[in-house]
Computed example of a mutant assay.
Amino acid sequence: MFLYLNGDYIKSEEAAISPFDHGFLYGLGLFETFRTYHGHPFLLDDHFHRLHEGAKAIGIELPEYKREDTCRIIHQLLELNNLEDGYFRWNVSAGEREIGLSHENYFSPNTIVIVKPLPQQTPREKEAVFLQTTRNTPEGTNRLKSHHFLNNLLGKRELGDQPGTEGIFLTENGEIAEGIVSNIYWVKKGTLYTPSEDSGALNGITRQFILKLAETTGLNTEEGLYGPESLLSAEEAFISNSIQEITALSSVKGRKLPGANGCSFKLISAEYKKHLTSLWSRLELTGRGID
């Protein structure tokens, strides 16, 4: 496979960065995962808005985002790898500096863009279980899409090889946070609930889009801190991420749910699919551009 590294397209086995990169030494790095639909990178502007906000928070200086330049890299990688569409990881690490914590900004980050084939099928339904591994608190004010992924890895190791199941993190206080690689939602009496960022959950790009989409379909939305009993008493529930899209939950902790037959799931999924080949930002749903 070919990847992109700091302006060059090279074979993956030829890629190398310095061992003094502070993304490697101290986890000072960020990434975005997204996919294309008939060549269109869905919600690309939202992904890069988050990437730039995260970089600013940890002192990585990035060049101004230009959609045309970014799309050129995306389409070149698709062509080089003989792919119509792909699963992209756009990775930025702080760059090379001497060993030791630094208080100064990083002006020469490494940018690595990796593409791989999309999964042939993504499940429409999964079961959910609560993990014993608790969700750690963010390193800063809010959780960033950063290289600090040990908590997720420990959750995955606890769950094991169960592709039809998603593990759900609870906070130290026993509140629902998110899945190992997903945000979670449930519906009760016409209201869509999802844990707030105060739970330590990542404010996923697909999460933001679903909340905006729910408003257009007439569903009320509520973000907050909720115990497991709130989810266990739900009428239906689902999870989301940018690659697997929206996946219905057929059960939570053994309690059966309607899964893909849930009315709200079907409504939101149908609306979601209408925009996959056109939208650059969730804000276009209300006629706005990215802030």
Score class of each variant (00 low, 15 high):
Ala234Gln: 11
Gln121Ile: 13
Glu53Tyr: 07
Arg135Asn: 14
Arg143Tyr: 03
Tyr65Phe: 06
Glu104Asn: 09
Glu84Phe: 11
His75Gly: 09
Gly174Pro: 00
Ser278Cys: 12
Ser93Trp: 08
Ile180Arg: 05
Asn6His: 10
Gly140Glu: 08
Lys273Asn: 06
Gln244Gly: 13
Thr194Asp: 02
Leu192Lys: 02
Leu3Asp: 06
Ser102Ala: 10
Thr221His: 02
Glu127Gln: 07
Arg288Glu: 13
Pro163Gln: 00
Leu78Ile: 10
Glu236Thr: 02
Arg72Ile: 15
Gly7Ser: 05
Ile58His: 02
Tyr37Thr: 09
Leu192Ala: 09
Arg288Trp: 08
Gln162Tyr: 12
Glu32Asn: 06
Val92Gln: 00
Leu153Ala: 11
Pro195Cys: 07
Glu271Ala: 11
Lys145Leu: 02
Gly59Ala: 03
Asp21Arg: 10
Ile210Thr: 05
Trp280Ser: 07
Ile168Glu: 02
Thr216Met: 09
Arg282Asn: 04
Ile239Phe: 01
Phe265Glu: 01
Tyr272Leu: 08
Ser196Arg: 00
Arg288Tyr: 11
Ala55Lys: 00
Thr277Val: 13
Glu96His: 03
Leu211Asn: 06
Thr36Ser: 11
Asn151Lys: 02
Leu232Thr: 11
Thr191Pro: 05
Gly7Phe: 09
Lys273Val: 01
Asn241Lys: 04
Phe24Trp: 08
Glu14Leu: 10
Pro41Phe: 03
Pro117Val: 07
Asp46Gln: 14
Glu14Asn: 09
Glu172His: 15
Thr134Phe: 14
Ile112Val: 14
Tyr106Lys: 12
Leu83Gln: 03
Gly59Trp: 08
Leu77Phe: 05
Ala15Tyr: 00
His103Gln: 14
Thr191Glu: 15
Ile180Met: 07
Leu154Thr: 11
Leu5Cys: 10
Ile17Cys: 05
Pro138Ala: 06
Glu79Ile: 13
Leu44Glu: 02
Val92Tyr: 00
His52Tyr: 02
Ile184Ser: 07
Leu276Cys: 02
Pro195Asp: 05
Lys188Pro: 10
Glu61Met: 12
Thr137Gln: 12
Tyr272Ala: 10
Glu14Met: 06
Thr134Gly: 12
Asn151Arg: 01
Phe209Asp: 03
Ser230Trp: 11
Arg143Asp: 09
Phe238Asp: 00
Asp198Thr: 14
Ile114Cys: 03
Leu159Gly: 01
Val187His: 11
Phe34Gly: 01
Trp186Arg: 03
